[in-house]
Design a protein around this nucleic acid. Structure first.
Lengths: 205, 205
DNA sequence: CCTTAAACCGACCCATAGGTTTGTTGCCTT
DNA sequence: AAGGCAACAAACCTATGGGTCGGTTTAAGG
């Protein structure tokens, strides 16, 4: 195989498998051999492509995680309809278990955020950037929704966005145990209910 | 000093300082020497009182954390008034930074839950028990609130409780960065708003 | 071909941190 | 007062895991 191509293939295999295992077991609870063994690669191969475990993970964040969050939570927001059902649907999709690989229950931003928040400020920053990207887009959509008459005028869009994000990050903690399907269902029901309370009271106009 | 008393004093000092540092830096990012150095104690002292680091933490959970959660989030629920302001106030208190020691922003159940969820099933179980204790009491109070006419009849108390807990666990992740006071304020505003949407619609009766 | 460098191998290094062991101090009982 | 055991000190052991380094294979170019 062509050198350059082979290199990219190896890097890709490392990143996907890395994210898979990191998401399942956590970053600090995963050692490189866990990943390398499954791919039948050696330490030498790894350190030829990445300068450290940390560098490796940052690469994963910037390629795979950003892309995942963007596809699941941000890109769908690009709409001109009522924002609330759109947000609801995107969150529902993001909480679905992923069939293609065995990644458990959607994605893992919340877990990584907590795992790194006290241990690695650099990685934390990258992860927070991803969340902020989501937040900015949420706020923007909510404000548009306000203008379009889908959301009551007196409400605070930053607050709503923070609340949505908080509940989303938190529900993944609860889904880790218990009946995840059930928990997810209960959560979405309440989110929907909360959303409906944000509508303008038409009779007051 | 009397032997038995001295023993209990040392155990107490270890637990308080341990929880303090664990909460700040995380369990796995804290080594025993970090704790022992500050207390001017030795490994020998530690392993005289606890059989392992894990055993130590479980002891902390069962004594300090349970007590903290109980005092902040459960005991206040023991009321006959409108449940919603009571819940709101308890959460507000729990998110307050602790002045007496330097423990940052209330308590740390969410952080520990995530930290252990993929690394130590035993400890996870103890922590989940604490959350469940909260949940049970929340549900119970909500149901009473329904009977007393503070909450609309058609609503699902389990769902509401799960939603409250999820948003509470998640907001701590957001408070770790950004402006914590501001984030907390925004969150409480929205929680209040969500609560107000749970009231029965009087005119429909 | 035959050199060169990228891609990779795998043994090795070494810092970290949980846990052990041996020894010392001092209260408490008899 | 003397033995004994609880409470601690501190040197030591050892597994783990990130990172290194010299060597080997393989593809690209002259």
């Amino acid at each position: 195989m062509e050198k350059n191509l082979k290199s990219r293939v190896t890097i890709n295999r490392l990143c996907y498998k890395g994210l898979d295992i990191f998401a399942k077991k956590g970053y600090y609870n995963t050692n490189l051999d866990d990943i390398l063994k499954e791919l039948e690669l050696s330490k030498g191969a790894f350190y030829h492509h990445f300068k450290s475990k940390e560098d490796f993970f940052i690469h994963i964040v910037q390629s795979l995680i950003v892309q995942k969050v963007y596809g699941l939570l941000i890109e769908p927001l690009n709409t001109h309809e009522d924002p609330m059902p759109v947000i609801l649907e995107s969150i529902e999709k993001a909480l679905e278990p992923n069939k293609s690989n065995e990644m458990v229950y959607g994605f893992m931003l919340a877990d990584f955020l907590t795992e790194f928040s006290k241990r690695n400020e650099d990685i934390s920053r990258y992860l927070k950037d991803v969340v902020q990207m989501w937040e900015v887009n949420l706020v923007s959509l909510l404000k548009k929704g306000k203008v379009d008459g889908y959301i009551a005028r007196h409400l605070d869009c930053e607050g709503i966005a923070a609340y949505i994000i908080a509940s989303f990050l938190g529900i993944r903690t609860l889904m880790a145990d218990k009946n995840p399907r059930q928990t997810k269902y209960l959560y979405l029901q309440q989110l929907k209910h909360y959303f409906s309370s944000l509508k303008p009271q038409l009779e007051l106009i």
